[in-house]
Structure formats: C-alpha cells, structure tokens
Design a binder for these strands. Structure first.
Lengths: 224, 224
DNA sequence: GATGTTTGGTGACTTCGTCACTGAAGCGAT
DNA sequence: ATCGCTTCAGTGACGAAGTCACCAAACATC
C-alpha cells in the first residue's frame, strides 16, 4: 500500500517535490476510482464533491447549447487535474459544461475538505493547483481566439493533425469533428470533401486518414 | 490608518467575515494604488506581480488577435478581484489578453508572497479566491457559448441593453461595439442601421441611444 | 432479406466576414 | 474662419460560414 500507492503522486509534474507529510495526506485521504468510457463525470445537475487527479485516460470537457450544438473546450490527460470541478464546487450558478470520460479512466479523488487542507498546508500543492488553473484558462482563451478569429478550414486542418495518431488515422464522424470546432456538420463535410479532392485525406464512414500531412500543416500555419 | 484603511475589506462580498489577524495582514501588507483611465494594467510582456482587488472603477479584460481584431472577455468591477493576474503570475506561457482601466481605478495590490500567506492561513480568503476564479471561468464559458452559437443581432441587442445607462444612452463607436462582440465593424454598422430603421435606437457619431427598450429586450430573449 | 438507424451528401438560401473605397464629422493649427 | 488631418460611419460586391430540408448510402438488428 505504501510504495505502490504513493507512486501515482510522482506522475504529476509539480507534485514530485511534495513534502512527506503532505504526500501521506494525499495517499491516505484520497481514493482511486475507475470510471468506464463514456461516463459523464460532471455536468449540469451533477456537481462532483471531489477534485480529480487523472491517473489514466482522457476526459473531454465540452459545452452544450440550447439548440443542440456543442463545442469541445479542452481535454484533461493523465498527469493533469480537473480544476474545473473545484470551480464547480463553489459556483453559485450552474454552468452548462460537462466532462466525459473519452476512454476508461482512473483518477485519484480528493474530497473537498482534504483539498482545502492541502491548499492550506503545502505551497507545492498551491503552485500545482494555480498552475493548473492557469493552463485551463489559457486553453479557454485559445478556444475563444480560434472560434472568433480563425477560418474553419485552418482550424479543421489543425484539429485533424492534433487528433491523428502517428499513422494519420482518425476515428471520428463529421458530427464529432463539428463539435470539436463548434460548427455545423455540413460545414465539416464540405471542408473534408475539399481536402479529399486535393488528396490530403481519405474518408470512410466514421474515419478519416491523413495522406498529405505536409499540406495540412501548411494550411494550419496560415496567418489570418 | 486603522479604521479608515481597514474598511475597504468590507466592500468585498466574501471578505466581510475575514478573521481579525488576516485582516491585519491584508491591510498592512498591501498598498492602495491609483491608476488613471486607459492605463494597460496587464498585458503581453507586462506581467503584474500583485493580485489586485478593485476598490473603485472598472477594468476591461480583452483579447487581441494577430490580424488586429479584438474581443472583450469580461469586466472587473469594484468589489471584485482580478484573479487572471494571479493565473498570469504562474503561467509558463505568455497569453495575449490584456486588462485596461476603463475608468480611473483604485485598487488594493497584494504582493505575490502575501497572497500565498493569505491563501495558506485563511479559509475565508481561499473561498473568496476560488469563488472569483469560478465566476471568471463561468464568464468565459458564456463568451464561448455566445460567439459560437448566437446570432449577432441578438448579441448586439443584449450588449446595448447591458451597456446602456438608465437613460438609454451609450457612448461607444461602432468599432468598439464590434470589439465587444468579437465581430467586424461593418457588421455592427449594418445591424445598428437596421435597429435604427425600426426606430429602436437613434445614432450619432460615437453615441447610441435606446428608444424602444422593450423591442430590444424581446429580440435579446429570442431563442437560437 | 426487410427494416430502422446512423452517417454523410447536396442545393438553396441567409447570415456573417472581408475588401476597397467613399464621404462626413470632429479637431487643431494657423 | 478655413484648411488639413484624423476618426468614424456607409456602401456594394463578394467569399465564407451557418441553416434548412431532404436524400442516399452504410451499417445494425432482427
């Protein structure tokens, strides 16, 4: 229980220098939870009472609108924390963002009271938390900048490169790609058709494969 | 110096129940600064090393893009804190948002080290800070939702009502209104012309006056 | 193989963003 | 006052993006 369970702390950049007594609090007063893929971890009317530190897997945080459209805000990967949940804990208003397990997920859940203790007692932990906030806010700024000022073809090229594995294969429907960019399905379909016409990608139902990575990178690097 | 200077703490909802020793730290180790209108309080390459608590005035936080366009993210009013600056303190990346004094501004500046002390020692202060973060993040979510999913005429009507004083007068150029919404000046001009045609507003150089508030409210309440 | 569901394709149309240019309004200096 | 400069707003043409209604192909299920 000691060497084995304490190890997860070191997976977090920023927590490796954590003071010994704080490490103990963290290991003893948090629980490791497993969440199956596609579970809604938090969302409207489902406020979590724990801070989650992701050990394994990916959580997608997205925003829903009344008219059924959605946009992906950012992803939380292993080694990162879901600070939005702490924000949510204290939010007087409900907000409409939700977090979904994109893969099977393992996370360390820290109860609200323990979180408060850790913040009070450890400067290292404080740095970790505020740095996480900072990163998320920066992410949100980038999302705003992109949807407000960037053309969709550039953003789509960017996303394709970002989502593609080393082989260039992407498993996503046009609808899902539209949600990534916060636009409409038809817009994505048309852009992908154009990419295909230029032999930059090939498509099949629910899948996209990048053929000419260089061309997409060139488009993605376009200013304005 | 005592009764007079300690008073500003009570202007902050969330700090009124602050423990006495913490109040002392706050009053003795922070300085009240005055900033003239239009000063850039923080921005790219100008990272502040203080947390600011706004005593008087309004700070506008906005995002700039490479191609010269801009969008207003939110405003900080008296009684609120500029948490973004703390995020900025720890941000490893520079971000492109900037804070501008929209009026003459008075603020209590808390040095980074004192901020850390206060966070460590006072649960009340922690609540205050995290609650402020939560509010800002909610604001950013709303901005994203609006620019991604709302029509500009609805958003413009909304902004006009929001910016108008009790008399219905707004002092802003079309360019400034465009920045409020993150759109182009021509778009705002066309929409305002349409509003004027319907006798909802009157315009003159650098000023807009609301005539038919009810009509604008009806439009702003439109779904989708 | 028949049926229903999901996914993608399409055309027509509206809304929004961009570009290039015009003219009007305000302001300061002489 | 009036000349010149700067800021602000109006305009038309066009391209990009979002919306709507509908269809067809691919897949899933029975």
């Amino acid at each position: 229980m000691t060497a084995e369970t304490m190890n997860w702390i070191d997976r977090f950049e920023g927590l490796s220098k954590l003071e010994a007594p704080i490490r103990d609090i963290l290991t003893n007063r948090s629980t490791v939870v497993s969440v199956p893929k596609d579970t809604i971890i938090f969302g409207p009317g489902k406020a979590p009472d724990h801070l989650l530190l992701l050990l394994q897997g990916v959580v997608r945080v997205q925003q829903l609108s009344e008219n059924g459209r959605e946009i992906v805000l950012y992803r939380v990967h292993a080694g990162e924390s879901c600070v939005l949940t702490t924000a949510c804990l204290l939010a007087y208003e409900d907000y409409s963002a939700e977090g979904i397990a994109e893969t099977d997920v393992q996370a360390a859940a820290i109860p609200r009271a323990v979180f408060d203790d850790l913040i009070a007692q450890s400067e290292t932990f404080r740095r970790f938390v505020f740095s996480a906030y900072s990163r998320r806010i920066t992410d949100l700024f980038m999302v705003i900048e992109e949807i407000a000022f960037q053309r969709v073809d550039i953003r789509l090229a960017h996303k394709l490169l970002q989502l593609a594995g080393t082989g260039g294969a992407i498993s996503a429907t046009h609808q899902q790609m539209a949600a990534e960019l916060g636009t409409a399905r038809e817009v994505v379909s048309r852009q992908l058709r154009e990419f295909q016409r230029r032999d930059w990608i090939t498509q099949s139902r629910g899948a996209i494969e990048i053929i000419d990575r260089a061309a997409l990178e060139k488009l993605a690097a376009t200013e304005s």
